[in-house]
């Protein structure tokens, strides 16, 4: 019964070299990361069809809201350009003396919101009308110049409350003597801004739901991977692997899927923007505008790739944690 008690005071071979230095741990940690990344990449290449399908779904789901977002940004830019050039046309009463006109000009120029004032006399207006309208001959039959003199007022670039300030400016100028009427076509600018506001919210809602979709797609793909490595996970857990160790390969897979998805989404966007951009330039030229389509840009590409990888990481994380919780000791 004295079973081997003679051996109990032997030095513990196991205890002697248990210590692993921090530097060694770090080195082995880095090596494991490298190995895991490489094998995650290999696993993706080993199932090219599955990978391609997943990545394409992710790419489309990322490209769609991004494309709409870009479109909105361009429309907004167009709108802001118009808003900045919102000109007021100040019509002078018929029969106003040149003195009165000069006084009005001075009054308008003294307003702090006004950037510049151009004067078009009634004669100039008539000349211009003759030249541009094509009714030149008909106009010669008129005894009297029917057109009033006009001040074209350019307000300074206005901030967010621009339309309010413009309205105020209109009332101020209308109150001046010798001013007949002030015209400003702000309504469509306001409508445009409300419409972009609504579209922005729509794009946001669509973006969020598509991002959730990507999250689920990646989670599902990772879940398949977990399922095929179920035994391996149990074994490494029993040998003392931490949750982080078990998670690592799946996080890398999710990350790579998301990154590839983001990258392909960028390619899709850049390609279609180039394609559409040509037609837009032609259209802009027809409107005598130098409007250029705002593209994704380098930061946009980076942003899409980053967004894809983050979603990939999150999807993989959720899938692995769900599995790890399920195999927890009770």
């Amino acid at each position: 019964m004295a079973r081997n008690s003679r051996l109990t005071d032997l030095p513990m071979r196991g205890a002697k070299d248990k210590k692993i230095s921090l530097a060694d741990r770090w080195k082995s940690y880095i090596v494991h990361h490298r190995i895991t990344l490489r094998s995650a990449f290999k696993k993706l290449l080993m199932e090219p069809v599955q990978t391609l399908l997943t990545v394409t779904v992710i790419a489309i789901a990322l490209a769609l809201p991004s494309a709409m977002f870009l479109m909105l940004k361009n429309v907004e830019q167009l709108g802001s350009g118009v808003e900045a050039s919102a000109q007021l046309s100040v019509f002078i009463k018929k029969g106003a003396t040149s003195q009165q006109i000069k006084q009005v000009q001075k009054q308008i120029l003294d307003l702090p919101e006004v950037w510049s004032v151009d004067y078009i006399s009634a004669d100039q207006a008539l000349q211009e009308f003759k030249a541009l309208s094509g009714f030149g001959q008909a106009l010669t039959y008129l005894d009297d110049n029917p057109l009033p003199a006009v001040f074209l007022v350019q307000p300074i670039r206005l901030g967010a409350s621009g339309s309010n300030q413009v309205e105020q400016l209109v009332t101020t100028i209308t109150s001046f003597s010798a001013v007949d009427e002030v015209l400003v076509d702000m309504l469509w600018v306001q409508r445009l801004s409300v419409m972009t506001d609504i579209s922005q919210k729509l794009v946001l809602a669509m973006g969020v739901s598509l991002i959730i979709g990507v999250l689920l797609v990646i989670g599902n793909t990772i879940r398949l991977g977990i399922h095929s490595r179920k035994e391996e996970i149990v074994v490494v857990k029993l040998i003392g692997a931490t949750d982080a160790y078990v998670r690592r390969p799946f996080l890398y897979s999710g990350f790579l899927l998301g990154l590839l998805g983001g990258f392909i989404a960028s390619i899709l966007l850049v390609g279609s923007l180039l394609w559409i951009g040509q037609s837009v330039s032609v259209l802009a030229a027809l409107y005598q505008s130098k409007f250029d389509l705002t593209g994704l840009g380098f930061s946009g590409v980076l942003g899409l790739c980053a967004l894809g990888s983050v979603i990939g990481l999150c999807g993989a994380w959720m899938a692995v944690m769900q599995h790890l919780r399920a195999i927890e000791p009770k």
């Binding site: 692993i20 060694d24 741990r25 080195k27 082995s28 940690y29 040998i239 003392g240 931490t242």
Partner: peptide, 13 residues
């Protein structure tokens, strides 16, 4: 090698 890798032994060892 799995238990060593999990425990963080340096690859050289």
């Amino acid at each position: 090698a799995l238990p060593l890798q999990i425990s963080g032994y340096p690859p050289s060892e």
